[in-house]
């Protein structure tokens, strides 16, 4: 390695470290503020960076006020059912569209592509009216409703099936498997990584969704984390330490899961995002 290359490497490292710190500042500031008193957080002369005393009252107070156990439960149920529905229906439809010749396949596939090209807000009013006409607002079902099927996931799984070799099906057929058995025992297990990618993608986007949960579930017992944060902001505008504590509690579970499974997260998002 020449001296020039060596200095180049050092410069790149310094640049990346500075960039990382910049990216982390909002997180660090959220954590520091969450442990301060209101007085300390709004003190400017001198400006306080680290809390003089790390207090936990902000956390205990928002947990008491917002019933986080319930919010976690609702959010988790919404994510769970959306992931199960998405993976299940997309695996079936993806196999049919990628591997089977049936009448009307072209039309079905155009429907999938069409849905993916349209902005999602165009569905919201009729979806809302459907749910309210059957009196199902403020339920877990209402939260899951727009995610019962997924055009994007169907497309993703179709691509995964199309990448598998033809011989596998032939061999299974010669062994006497019908199409259902071939799918279940031979083909579906081979697309496990696409299913995991879709599952992660669905979970992250369900967790981040704000507009749908906010309009469909307004009862305070049926909120999810994001809609509860939106509601809370309206109520405690000035109490930033509490708002930061609530944000931290809302984001922490997903961050921890992400840090444990970061490889799957990043690859899942990269493969599904890139295939879109």
């Amino acid at each position: 390695m020449t001296a020039r290359e060596k200095t180049m490497r050092v410069v790149i490292q310094i640049f990346l470290i500075l960039a990382s710190i910049t990216m982390l500042v909002p997180f660090i500031w959220m954590i520091l503020t969450a442990f301060k008193t209101v007085t300390e957080s709004t003190q400017i002369n001198p400006f306080v960076i680290f809390p003089t005393q790390w207090i936990t009252e902000n956390f205990t107070e928002v947990i008491d006020n917002m019933n986080f156990i319930l919010l976690y439960k609702n959010t988790l149920l919404m994510i769970f059912f959306r992931v199960v529905c998405a993976v299940l229906t997309a695996t079936l439809a993806g196999y049919a569209l990628g591997r089977l010749n049936f009448k009307g396949r072209g039309l079905c596939f155009s429907l999938v592509l069409f849905q993916m090209m349209v902005p999602a807000q165009i569905f919201i009013i009729p979806q809302y009216l459907m749910i309210s006409s059957i009196n199902m607002t403020n339920t877990i079902f209402a939260l899951v409703f727009p995610g019962l099927v997924t055009a994007f996931g169907t497309f993703l799984l179709r691509q995964a099936y199309m990448g598998l070799p033809r011989d596998l099906e032939e061999a299974a057929r010669l062994d006497g498997c019908n199409i259902g058995q071939t799918f279940l025992f031979i083909m579906a297990p081979l697309t496990r990584s696409a299913m995991v990618a879709l599952g992660i993608f669905t979970a992250v986007f369900a967790f981040k969704d704000l507009m749908w949960p906010m309009i469909i579930n307004t009862d305070k017992n049926m909120l999810v984390l994001s809609s509860a944060l939106a509601k809370m902001q309206g109520q405690y505008t000035a109490n930033y330490p509490q708002l930061m504590a609530a944000s931290l509690i809302s984001c922490l579970p997903m961050i921890v899961i992400y840090l444990i499974f970061q490889k799957q997260f990043i690859e899942g998002i990269a493969t599904s995002g890139g295939k879109l």
Binding site: A90, L92, A93, F102, I122
Partner: peptide, 30 residues
């Protein structure tokens, strides 16, 4: 061919019903 037709529709049906109810009808309705 017949069996592919049947299985194909069986597999694709949940998604198609979902897309029609959740997306196609809503676009027209909007």
């Amino acid at each position: 061919a017949r069996s592919e037709n049947i299985w194909g529709w069986l597999f694709v049906l949940p998604t198609m019903i979902g897309l029609i109810v959740l997306n196609i009808y809503p676009i027209i309705n909007t």
